[in-house]
Amino acid sequence: MRTITGRRTGRSWRGKVDFVKFVAPALLLYSLFFIVPLLQTVVYSFTDWNGIARSRHYIGIDNYANMLKDDLFLGSLRFTLTYAVLYTIGINIVAVALALLLTRSIKSKTALRAVIFTPFLFNDVTVGFLWQFLLGRFMTGLYDKTHLGIFGISWLSNEHLVLYSIIFVKMWQAMGYFMVIYIAGLQLIPKEPLEAAVIDGATGWKQITRITLPLLMPTMAICVFLSITDALHMFPLLMTLTGGGPGHASESVSLYIYNTAFNNQQMGYASSLAVVLAVLVLIITYFQLKVFRGKEVSM
């Protein structure tokens, strides 16, 4: 202890120089390209700036007040939240199931895992328009050949179905990602509780629900966190999959902000929407951390 304090006071000058030398590059770039823009967004959100004009006027909380009357914004909010809930539930169920199946003694499991993971590497733009083709033109082609009802449905141009189509495409892209995280989590679970349960006569389904899943909680916390964050951030995929349509039926908050800012040039209003999105995300994150902290302790 004494040596540490001695060193600190004796070499504090070098300590400070070192601190600047090591931390400054990251801190400077991070501040300049993240923290400052973040604060600027807050400032813009109180203005009527249109992105082109040199002048901008402070209009108080008008932007925030207008939001409440903006049906497109409220619609995008509803879409984003519904999507986040359904996507999070869906992808975690599928990923856990795949992970449980692919940790059994199956010969070709390495190959299966590798294939299922693949689409995670594809960029959103490409995944979006490939699936636009598959769910659109290609489906119609299949329908003409087979006359199966499922192919006759317009998956992307029906305003009620489009939500589910997007969830499907996103799950197709990301299920391998969550699967490999769950597999890693399953491999961390100690063998003893399961063996004890088998001796006590617990069978298949009971083993999973009573022993494996509770022990998988920490991994699940991570995956739920990642999938919710992912869902709230989503929009590059939408740009080429649906473009927010039909109408505005699949416009997420992020996409709406982008369109408001860069297509309608309402930078001030878009900024206020961004602030609301940020606050929303932080609140959701806070509650998630709280809920899952509690779970982990109670385990």
């Binding site: 973040l38 900024s271 961004a274």
Partner: peptide
């Protein structure tokens, strides 16, 4: 935690 649109315009 924060999505890209939060800093998009100022960036």
């Amino acid at each position: 935690m924060l999505p890209f649109p939060v800093v998009m315009i100022p960036i």
